[in-house]
Simulated scan of single mutants.
Amino acid sequence: MTQRIDYIKQAPDLFKRFVDFGMHLKNGSIETAIVDLVDIRASQMNGCGFCLDMHIKQATLHGERPLRLHHVAIWRESTLFSPRERAALAWTEALTQLAPHGVPDAVYERVRTELSEQEIVDLSYVIMVINAWNRINVGFQSVPGSLDKAYGLDKAELS
């Protein structure tokens, strides 16, 4: 695979602003472990190899267990996720692939029982950001692992 356009080089200011926006979310109310799971699940759903590769390596560096990473795709059947994590993953799926009639009340109620209003808003922004990254990286065919050294992801030792 060859990257179609180097969007970072073509729009460095927009790239920096978007990175800054995403970094601002790191100070939000959603814990890193859930952000990692959300980034992985949305990237799986969107078929974004670049982001999936990146976020699995980040989660590994954050101390996530390998089996849980393998189970993200089957989170409904897995016993490895807490109710809070399950609610976040359900919300991720609902906002990543919007149903014709919007987000079902049952999904909203599930997330509402596990997260505060502030956390739901913060989680929604996390989901918006990963979906945007997925779209630009899928569109321009960013090569998985191509920025590992620049982002320090080579330290995950997963190559």
Rank of each mutant, 00 (worst) to 15 (best):
Q3F: 10
I5P: 00
D6C: 06
Q10F: 11
A11M: 12
K16I: 10
V19Y: 06
V19H: 07
M23Q: 15
K26E: 08
N27S: 15
G28H: 05
I30P: 00
E31R: 14
T32E: 15
T32H: 13
A33P: 05
L37W: 02
I40G: 03
S43V: 05
S43G: 10
S43W: 03
M45Q: 13
G47M: 07
F50H: 07
L52I: 02
L52W: 07
H55G: 06
T60E: 08
H62K: 07
E64M: 15
E64K: 13
E64C: 11
R65K: 12
L67N: 06
H71C: 10
V72E: 06
V72F: 06
A73D: 10
I74N: 11
T79S: 13
R86E: 02
A87G: 12
A90T: 05
T92K: 04
T96Q: 08
H101R: 11
Y108A: 00
E109H: 13
E109Y: 10
E109Q: 15
R110N: 09
I120K: 09
I120Q: 09
I127F: 08
I130Q: 03
A132F: 09
A132I: 08
R135M: 05
N137A: 09
Q141P: 01
V143Y: 11
P144W: 12
G145I: 08
L147C: 10
D148R: 01
K149R: 12
A150F: 06
K155A: 15
A156L: 09
L158K: 07
